[in-house]
Design a protein around this nucleic acid. Sequence first.
DNA 1: CTAGACCTTCCAGTGCGCTGGAAGGTCAAG
DNA 2: CTTGACCTTCCAGCGCACTGGAAGGTCTAG
Lengths: 133, 133
Amino acid sequence: MRIGDLAARSGLTTKTIRFYEQAGLLPEPPRTSGGYRDYSDEAAARLAFVREAQSAGLTLAEIRSLLTLRDSGQVPCAQVTRLIDEHLAEIEERLRELRRTRRTLRTLATRAAETDPAECAEAGVCTILGPIP
Amino acid sequence: MRIGDLAARSGLTTKTIRFYEQAGLLPEPPRTSGGYRDYSDEAAARLAFVREAQSAGLTLAEIRSLLTLRDSGQVPCAQVTRLIDEHLAEIEERLRELRRTRRTLRTLATRAAETDPAECAEAGVCTILGPIP
DNA sequence: CTAGACCTTCCAGTGCGCTGGAAGGTCAAG
DNA sequence: CTTGACCTTCCAGCGCACTGGAAGGTCTAG
C-alpha cells in the first residue's frame, strides 16, 4: 500500500503520515524499487491506535511512549491506565476553567445588554469590560 | 514608574510588558534621561483592561483591535458585545468537545478496571485502547 | 569606587501538531 | 513520448503568548 492509500484509509494526509514517521510514531516502512513507501495493513492499525489515543486526549509524545513500550514487547496496560487517569483529571480541570470563563462572559453579556452606549460615550471608554464584581 | 514597578503592580513580567508594547497593546512610553521606560498610571489601567479581556477569553489580537478602536476615540461597545457573543459560542463548543473526550476517557477507565492484564499479554497488545463501541 | 539591582536591545526558542512549498523522481495510461 | 497523478526529500513556517539569554548601560547605597 502506498502512502496515499494509507492516508485515504486512515483519514490523515500524506504529510501527516510522514510527520508521524519522523516523530517516531510509525516505523519506517520498506520501500518499493522506485523508492516509494510500501505499507502493510499493520500500519493502518497503528494509525487507528494513534487516532484513538489522540481523541482520548493523549499527546503524541505520550502515544509514542506507549507504542515504544508495546514495540519493546511489554504490555503497557499499567501505563495506559495511569495516562487515562491523569488525563481525566486534566479534563476536569479544563472543564472547571472553561465554566469559570463562561460565567465571566455571561456576566459581561448581561452587562452589555443593560448598558446604554451613551454611558460609554460619557466615560470615553466602553464600560462593558471592566472589573467583574 | 519604571517597568519593574508596573510589572509588580500588574502582575506581569517586564518581558511580557515589553512584548505587549511590541505587539501594539501598550503605547511606547516616554523615557527617562537614562533611557528607561517611564510609565503613568494609565498604563496600569490599560494592562488591567488587557488582563480582564484576556480572562474573558479574548485573544491579544482581539484586545488590540478593541484598544486601537478606543484609542481612535470610538466607543467599541458594539464590537465588545459581538466578541463576547462569539466567545461564548466558542466556549460552549469547547465544553461540548471536552465532555465528549471525558466520556471517552471514562469508558476507557472502566475498561481498564475490568481488563485482565493477562488478556492483553495474550493479544500482544494492551487491549484497553481500541475502538469505543 | 564598587557592588548589585535594575534597565536596555536584539535574537532566538518554546510547545504542539501539523502544513506549505520547492525541486525533482516514478509510473501507468493514452 | 507525453501527460498527469503520485511520490520523494528538505527546509521553513504557522499560531499563540510568551520566555530565555547575551551583552551591555544606569542608578543608588555603602
